[in-house]
């Protein structure tokens, strides 16, 4: 097991502050979706983070470790919870600004760049520890795929449920 540090330092503060900012945004944003939709959109980010960290971050691939060691820690779980805030805001903004079909690729690109930037900050804060030649550029590709899948999920949920998210003024 790889251990990088054992102190409460930059990576824990980064995760906690990210979670705080994300949670405040999710709570303060005017309600836009039905309760069930909102719950699914939030859980989507949590699931995606865990899915990739447990497929790419564990054997046999094991391309990176998260936080202080390769073990599963409480800060790892909190970081997944903060991914939930990111996915909720992703869907919220998408629906709020009413992205036209011709601009979906641009929206995905902007969010992939934003996510890559956030990951770069996380690497500087020692949240992620890359191994075996893994590079930030590879994450950019993953974000493009993930965000495209998220939008597919968004439209699929709406289509199957046969409802548009309830819109509120503002």
């Amino acid at each position: 097991m790889n251990v990088y540090d054992t102190h409460f330092d930059s990576n824990e503060w980064f995760v906690l502050s990210g979670l705080f900012i994300g949670a405040v945004l999710v709570v303060l944003l005017p309600k836009r979706f039905r309760a069930k939709n909102a719950i699914v959109y939030y859980t989507c980010g949590l699931y995606t983070g865990l899915f990739f960290d447990h497929s790419l971050g564990l054997e046999p691939i094991d391309l990176y470790d998260v936080d202080d060691s390769s073990a599963y820690e409480w800060t790892d779980f909190l970081s997944y919870v903060s991914y939930g805030c990111v996915s909720y805001i992703f869907f919220y903004v998408y629906d709020r600004i009413g992205v036209r079909p011709s601009r979906i690729a641009v929206y995905v690109l902007v969010w992939a760049l934003l996510s890559t930037g956030m990951e770069w900050l996380a690497v500087q804060a020692h949240v992620f520890h890359y191994r075996l030649g893994y590079r930030l550029a590879y994450s950019f590709l993953i974000y493009l795929i993930v965000h495209s899948c998220w939008l597919a999920l968004f439209h699929w949920c709406e289509k199957i449920a046969g409802e548009r998210p309830r819109r509120h003024p503002g």
């Binding site: 069930k36 719950i39 699914v40 859980t43 989507c44 699931y47 949920c157 199957i160 449920a161």
Partner: peptide, 10 residues
């Protein structure tokens, strides 16, 4: 329902 299923799956 579909949304319930997706949530329980996640």
């Amino acid at each position: 329902s579909v949304l319930d299923t997706v949530f329980v799956l996640f």
